[in-house]
């Protein structure tokens, strides 16, 4: 097995007394696409900033491309592409200048930067906006530019913190496709997301984090197999009656989750569950049957829903 490009052992990050990352272990293999999935405040961005050789860890071991970020920060950052959660483009520069200036920070020759930025403008579908000011771009365009900028130095590892937040569905799918191609070329991807469809699409393997700890690890399919049933029946009785309906449903399916707006019943066959609900004399306002997803895994692991 090749050496991992990222290896974290008992990684801890404290902000004063608050422990945002509580001793997590994980490894990322070269060429892999690795995901961090978790709710707000789980510690995803904090972890990404440590991997990005920016934020100093409080304790534990961390190795990026065989180097220690607290010793070789600049050397590591030279080989990383970073897409932060919040865009940090320079508002005073034009679109193309943002790419140009950023490329120069990597010590890349002016001419090469100029060549590369043409390709990146294309990648971000911003060719016709090249001379616009950042303020005049839409939120999604800014996001695309930030993502393109992260590729300026042709990174070995591409770190994306919630890359598709703010993108419309079409732009999201285009980005997924581009990331897929990058991976085919051997770039290692590390990404965080709230969207389970994104995690399922993009991540070969992921960790589910909550409150600074890893709750589970595996491929999306394996996690779903391990922590959920094959199907889920979702029934709604109206927010006032969900509780009492749930009591009447006890024993149905493998497991029942009562959310504020609906009840989830986990089982191998969802349609059978719906029949059983009706047999018990309950008439939901709406009902549907779907495949289990990472959302269900998350709910099972943390007792909370992924998207608030």
């Amino acid at each position: 097995m090749p050496n991992p490009v990222i290896s974290a052992k008992s990684l801890v990050k404290k902000f004063k007394d608050f422990e945002a990352v509580k001793g997590i272990d994980f490894e990322v293999e070269p060429g892999e696409s690795f995901g961090l999935l978790g709710p707000n405040g789980a510690g995803k961005s904090t972890t990404m900033r440590m991997i990005g050789a920016v934020s100093n860890r409080t304790s534990g071991d961390l190795e990026i491309l065989g180097m220690d970020p607290s010793v070789d920060g600049p050397k590591i950052r030279a080989q990383l592409g970073v897409v932060p959660q919040a865009d940090n483009l320079d508002q005073e520069l034009k679109v193309w200048e943002n790419l140009y200036v950023y490329g120069r920070y990597f010590g890349i020759d002016k001419k090469i930067v100029k060549d590369r930025l043409e390709g990146l403008l294309d990648f971000a579908q911003l060719k016709d906006k090249r001379n616009e000011k950042i303020d005049d771009l839409s939120g999604g365009m800014k996001r695309r530019l930030t993502i393109a900028r992260g590729l300026m130095n042709e990174p070995k590892i591409f770190l994306l913190d919630e890359p598709t937040t703010g993108l419309d569905p079409q732009a999201r799918h285009i980005l997924w496709d581009r990331l897929f191609r990058l991976r085919e070329q051997g770039t290692t991807l590390v990404l965080t997301t709230h969207y389970m469809d994104e995690a399922e699409q993009l991540a070969d393997r992921l960790i589910v984090v909550d409150k600074g700890q890893i709750m589970a690890e595996g491929s999306p399919a394996a996690l779903i197999r391990q922590y959920s049933s094959r199907e889920v029946a979702e029934v709604r009785f109206g927010s006032d009656s969900n509780r009492s309906a749930a009591d009447a449903l006890s024993g149905v399916g493998d497991r029942i989750e009562v959310l504020p707006d609906r009840i989830l019943i986990y089982a191998n066959n969802g349609e059978e569950i719906l029949s059983e609900v009706h047999r018990r004399g309950l008439v939901p306002i709406t009902s549907l049957v779907r495949r289990s997803s990472l959302e269900d895994v998350f709910l099972k692991l943390t007792g909370r829903s992924l998207i608030d």
């Binding site: 990005g52 920016v54 920060g73 600049p74 050397k75 950052r77 030279a78 990383l80 970073v82 932060p84 919040a86 940090n88 483009l89 320079d90 508002q91 950023y102 920070y105 990597f106 010590g107 130095n153």
Partner: peptide, 14 residues
């Protein structure tokens, strides 16, 4: 506000 230092520090510069 614009976090340009954060952007600079994501590159090899110190």
């Amino acid at each position: 506000w614009n976090k340009i230092f954060e952007a600079m520090f994501a590159t090899p510069i110190s």
